[in-house]
Design a protein around this nucleic acid. Structure first.
Ligand SMILES: [Mn+2]
Ligand SMILES: [Mn+2]
Ligand SMILES: [Zn+2]
Ligand SMILES: [Zn+2]
Lengths: 154, 154
DNA sequence: ATCTATATAGTATTTATTATTATATAATAA
DNA sequence: TTATTATATAATAATAAATACTATATAGAT
């Protein structure tokens, strides 16, 4: 991850009165550098390489804290577990319904924003206060599509 | 729910070789008539009114079977539980990040399809086989926005 | 260097979901 | 209608993700 991105997160953490621990910094780096949208368990396995005594609880606490600061995004998948995305820029996800693999779908940001803001206007039956939106594409990754004929039939 | 919608689901169930039980029919009716996007536990509480001996397992099995037949849609929310939508037509959801309440966002279908199909073209870094897509709007419902000042600050 | 509040590690608990198994029942055919 | 058979159900046990608890450690401040 870039230094400026790390500094940005660090200063937000300090501004909010949280303290900076080595585990916390490492979790930020792992989730920000990963392109695989890892689960908490996967972040835990990764951080154990540098901090063997870290607890899973610490990973969960830090990921949900970063999420509350909007510095990571949570992604819900089938196989009910939460995955984390260190890329908080506006983009979509394609999710494999068989193995859960998540890849990014880059979408032209102004188009995306315009579409959503136009679409939501006057279409809510209740007065919701929207501050974020997301889009997911569901299907099969190429591996699952070719490897397992059973799952590719509809 | 309309008779024709029920018949449509019933005939698909028969065509796929599944049998028709009173519990199954009642679950279909409950999830199809509900506008609240209930969880499995909520469907369970509802069906107990008419079938007090029903088991939660039966509810789960039927909901996931209906999902595999594409006659209900699954919605993942925060507070890690799955919710079910008997309206399988193309529409979005606005989800309250505080209480989990889900409401529909009706979007002009041709627009929606066109946008998504245009956007996905050539933008996937891998060869995914997409067969479905969804959009969610995250924020606060009016109740949570006004009632709990703590959650409405960003 | 000391103090204090927060973070962490280790463990226990909760909760949603799935698996197991014996019984009941829907579908089919005699 | 009755008998047969395969699937569905109810009841229970097991799994796995996430959260709660608590004593110790440590970051940040004095
Ligand atoms: Mn992403
Ligand atoms: Mn809906
Ligand atoms: Zn896959
Ligand atoms: Zn709410």
């Amino acid at each position: 991850m870039t230094d400026s991105r790390l500094n940005q997160i660090v200063s937000k953490i300090k501004k909010m009165g949280y303290s900076l621990t080595p585990q916390r910094v490492e979790i930020i780096k792992i989730v920000s550098e990963s392109k695989s949208h890892p689960s908490a368990a996967e972040v835990y396995n990764k951080i154990k390489e540098s901090y063997p005594m870290v607890s899973l609880n610490t990973v969960y606490k830090n990921l949900s804290m970063l999420s509350s600061l909007h510095e990571v995004k949570e992604i819900k998948t089938m196989q009910n577990s939460v995955h984390y995305d260190g890329d908080v820029s506006l983009h979509g996800h394609a999710i494999c319904e068989n193995c859960g693999k998540i890849i990014d779908v880059q979408i032209n940001e102004p188009d995306f924003k315009k579409f959503f803001e136009n679409k939501i206007k006057g279409r809510l039956t209740e007065n919701y206060h929207i501050n974020n939106y997301g889009v997911e594409f569901y299907g099969l990754c190429d591996y699952c599509y070719t490897a397992d004929p059973a799952v590719s039939e509809t």
